[in-house]
């Protein structure tokens, strides 16, 4: 069995082209997960455009089929969709997932962002078959891959997804204010070095992941000014990953204000924290163009 994960967009909130962000990248959220050739796409931020170009090149004319899992529909997670070239190809089949049966909110909002006021091509003119699908309220096996959703803390709400097959597990959990869910958040704000207890249901959801890709937008210093904005401190992810026995943690949804060297500093801080708690955890910052094989 093979599981490949490739980062096409790692930035949060808004694209950040420019020299200061070239190493971790400026495109917004988009992660490709390939499980035995089955293609899953987590979020359709601006990184989706380049993934689309690559898919067309890779496919060499054979039909493209992809399962699209959106954490939520804030701009930075859907903006690449109108530029996703496979959507313009008649032989392509795309499945756009909501969690609940009979819900087509994500599909509807993808259509909505292509209204004439926003974009010159309308959704109905896309050549591909674009189906609204769902996860049976929380969990479903899609092409042999168990896909599960978990509702997170974010303005307007968002979902984390886990993808599992034959003992391999990837969790994609972006746009989540974990720091609002930890036990005794006020005490933790005063004692940032103390270990943070994450909600047990979420720890179970993440448990044993070979790779956890998670929103770690803020530093400990920045967070007090950003409470309620819907994003976590990177250091809190370390505590989550250690509690859940995760092997590798990819810090994701980089703050648009963070240059590459600031993201390096966040990684160093997180690695030091993992060491201090005696955990065997690989911590890194997701970077555009990086591909892992699990």
């Amino acid at each position: 069995m093979s599981v490949f994960v490739k980062f096409w967009g790692t930035r949060g909130s808004i694209p950040t082209p420019g020299h200061a962000t070239r190493r971790f990248g400026g495109n917004t959220s988009c992660v490709e997960v390939r499980v035995d050739g089955q293609l899953f796409i987590c979020d359709g931020g601006t990184g989706l455009r380049e993934l689309g170009l690559e898919l067309v090149a890779r496919s060499a004319g054979t039909p493209i089929e992809a399962h699209l899992l959106f954490s939520h529909t804030h701009w930075d997670h859907i903006q690449g969709f109108p530029f996703f070239s496979p959507a313009y190809v008649a032989s392509t089949a795309l499945y756009v997932y909501d969690v609940e049966p009979h819900d087509d909110r994500v599909h509807r909002l993808l259509r909505g962002q292509m209204r004439h006021d926003y974009f010159p091509v309308s959704f109905s003119d896309l050549g591909a078959s674009i189906h609204s699908a769902n996860l049976d309220g929380g969990s479903k096996t899609i092409a042999g891959v168990r896909v599960s959703a978990f509702e997170q803390r974010h303005p307007g709400r968002s979902f984390a997804y886990s993808l599992e097959r034959e003992g391999k597990k990837v969790v994609y959990a972006t746009d989540n204010e974990l720091d609002m869910l930890v036990a005794a958040p006020e005490a933790i704000a005063r004692y940032p070095d103390a270990r943070r207890l994450c909600p047990p249901e979420f720890v179970r959801f993440v448990a044993g992941a070979d790779l956890l890709i998670a929103d770690g937008q803020y530093t400990d210093e920045e967070y007090p000014q950003k409470v309620g904005w819907g994003h976590s401190r990177a250091t809190t992810l370390v505590d989550l990953a250690l509690a859940a026995g995760v092997r590798q943690l990819a810090i994701f949804h980089h703050d648009p204000m963070h240059a590459d060297d600031e993201i390096d500093a966040i990684v160093m801080q997180c690695r030091a924290r993992a060491d201090r708690f005696g955990g065997k955890l690989v911590v890194f910052a997701a970077r555009e163009g990086m591909e892992l094989r699990l």
Partner: peptide, 11 residues
């Protein structure tokens, strides 16, 4: 940089 990769663009 300490992470096992399949591929990456280098800087």
């Amino acid at each position: 940089d300490g992470v096992r990769i399949h591929s990456a663009v280098l800087f």
